[in-house]
Design a binder for these strands. Structure first.
Lengths: 173, 173
DNA sequence: CGTAAATTTCAGACATTCCTGAAATTACGA
DNA sequence: TCGTAATTTCAGGAATGTCTGAAATTTACG
């Protein structure tokens, strides 16, 4: 399967950004390909189109499925799995941010809570330092709670809010 | 220099999270140490405390300075550089998010703009695919603009907005 | 200047992550 | 149940990223 220049460009760019996004090149390219593809693709289609090992495609697809960014469909009379990516970009964003929060923020929140608890029995550490840790915990909790709330606001409302931009500030004076 | 258990725990945790945050362990540990330290530290202090090579500290500090998370101060009658981290957690967050946006989002925005422009001369690519790309560009522009606006709202206002949580939604019906 | 402390550079050791290809496993139809 | 297509597992090679220690450079002061 040959890609059109436009699609090829996107796939290659996704691949280049993969490092910065903290995922592997293959996963990024496969996701780009599936996201843009008008129809579901088999693993072989993907391996051939992107010139990567078939086994690599298998592992990468598992990862994308674990992220809930890709799911499997089937075609009548064909045993092979067909893969398609979620096309709704809001859902994709939410999925990615949820994942990052879970892996990058939540463990630190957890650790800070424990640390603040234990710090009370720690006479060695200056109060100033304890305060800074407690302050950081409070801040992260606040951000975390905020995200949990706004992530469930219905999409049209969220869009309106976003388009208001800085003017929402007037609401609270 | 010996760390108190509380501080040691934070430093080690920062180091462990480094991978997930897309930075090196050394950079993360040094930042944690400086962020919690009540006083500025010399590069030698840091190397000794964390048991890492002096040269590693030098490179890591350069990186933290490039991120604008750490700056240099001096002590009268001492030639050595003393390093301190920004202590204001809002500023730290803004700095980090700005950096991530610049490195992870802006290049893609740029690429999508170019691609959408070029796609007009591309008869091969189905309209549906072009639309999806244009749609993605629009979405990212919207998010990007939104961030640029709210990042400059004064902190107390932002805090109030955050504490309103989902109730802001009522404002726009 | 000269020199000694402080800092930086950098080659290569080490560690980690990613990818491949062969082999094993699973799923399906005859 | 057998044979074949489809998929997955996994050992090891390739590529990348990180850290060290020695050497080079810069800086401050006599």
């Amino acid at each position: 399967m040959k890609l059109t220049p436009t699609v090829e460009r996107c796939v290659l760019h996704w691949g280049e950004m993969a490092g910065r996004w903290g995922i592997s090149r293959s996963v990024a390219q496969i996701h780009a390909l599936l996201f843009l593809s008008p129809t579901p693709l088999t693993a072989d289609d993907i391996a051939e189109t992107l010139n990567v090992a078939r086994s690599n495609v298998s592992v990468s697809l598992k990862e994308l499925q674990a992220w809930d960014l890709v799911n499997v469909t089937h075609v009548l009379g064909d045993r092979r799995d067909y893969f398609q990516a979620r096309k709704d970009i809001w859902e994709v964003l939410k999925t990615i941010v949820d994942g990052r929060k879970r892996r990058e923020i939540d463990p630190t929140l957890q650790m800070l809570r424990e640390t603040v608890g234990q710090a009370k029995q720690d006479a060695e550490t200056p109060q100033e330092v304890k305060d800074r840790i407690a302050n950081m915990l409070e801040f992260l909790e606040e951000m975390s709670n905020w995200y949990e709330q706004i992530r469930d606001i219905p999409r049209p409302t969220l869009l309106k809010l976003m388009r208001m931009g800085a003017r929402v500030a007037k609401v609270v004076g």
